[in-house]
């Protein structure tokens, strides 16, 4: 518990520190926030267009799907806020050798590398996603259910952890590749897959893909399971599988990252 408290305190300090840093570049901050607001607007416009023509999309009703959109947006925002920029910077740290100064600190390397900076410009995404989820719940007159809320919170955390694990594996490749500009592209592919309900994988050709991205590379668990648990069917086996997959992925990605760090060559000064 003491260690957890120490890391939470440190995370708070890093967040405060990077907020001060972000404020030094106000223009950049405002542009990033504006882009995210426009992006949410596009997603919602697309959603309105589709539900203007149909009442149900792959089994999801309008307000349920709105909740799904909000859930994905908040989760994606959380990932981008906490980890994306850090992971994206990792290749540069390897290339320049600046990783040296993170590896000599008496603290978990994975924590310091992946959490050292909070991207405050994406923090509003989490709030906007939460607001969209709130609106969806109000529109569907959702009745409070503590079991669903707990299942949602647990699987939302799992979704974040699964996404983080995938990102960590992609990041680790930078140690060997040095130039890893593909990380952002891979993350885009990942988030594109995660942003749709898994029910869209219909038909004999698509179903194997749905199976692959649910049980082998469980990207579809990220937003689908928490959204389902909250506003559609609470499926305990699927929640259990999500918890299991999360534990395995967190463990495996950490081992892989540590293995990658053993190959770090530390660029010459």
């Amino acid at each position: 518990m003491r260690i957890l408290a120490k890391y939470l305190r440190l995370l708070g300090s890093l967040a405060r520190f990077t907020l001060a840093r972000e404020m030094a570049f106000r223009g950049n901050f405002l542009v990033k926030v504006s882009v995210e607001v426009i992006w949410l607007g596009i997603m919602l416009a697309f959603y309105e267009t589709i539900f203007g023509r149909t009442k149900v999309l792959a089994g999801w009703r309008k307000d349920e799907f709105l909740f799904f959109v909000g859930c994905f947006f908040a989760l994606n925002g959380l990932i981008e806020m906490l980890f994306l920029e850090n992971c994206n910077d990792f290749a540069e740290l390897v290339r320049t050798g600046d990783l040296d100064f993170l590896l000599i600190r008496p603290i978990d390397e994975q924590f310091l590398i992946t959490c050292r900076r909070v991207d405050w410009a994406t923090a509003p995404n989490v709030l906007m996603g939460a607001a969209v989820m709130g609106i969806a719940l109000a529109r569907m007159h959702w009745q409070f259910d503590p079991v669903r809320v707990m299942a949602f919170l647990a699987t939302f955390a799992c979704g974040t952890a699964i996404a983080y694990s995938f990102m960590l594996v992609l990041t680790a490749f930078s140690v060997w590749m040095v130039r890893n500009q593909s990380l952002m592209e891979m993350w885009w592919l990942f988030s594109s897959l995660a942003r749709y309900p898994k029910e869209i994988f219909l038909g004999s050709r698509a179903e194997p893909l749905g199976f692959l991205f649910t049980f082998i590379l469980p990207i579809l668990l990220v937003a689908n399971v928490p959204a389902n648990a909250m506003v559609r069917t609470l499926n305990p086996p699927m929640v259990g599988f999500t918890l299991f997959a999360t534990a395995i992925l967190l463990w495996a990605s950490r081992k892989f990252f540590q293995h990658a760090l053993r190959s770090y060559r530390s660029a010459s000064s």
């Binding site: 520190f17 001060a20 840093r21 030094a24 320049t96 050798g97 600046d98 040296d100 100064f101 000599i104 000064s269």
Partner: peptide, 13 residues
């Protein structure tokens, strides 16, 4: 570890 050619201070604060 101090390296003359590298910075360990966080910029710009």
């Amino acid at each position: 570890l101090v390296m003359g050619q590298k910075n360990q201070l966080w910029w710009p604060p």
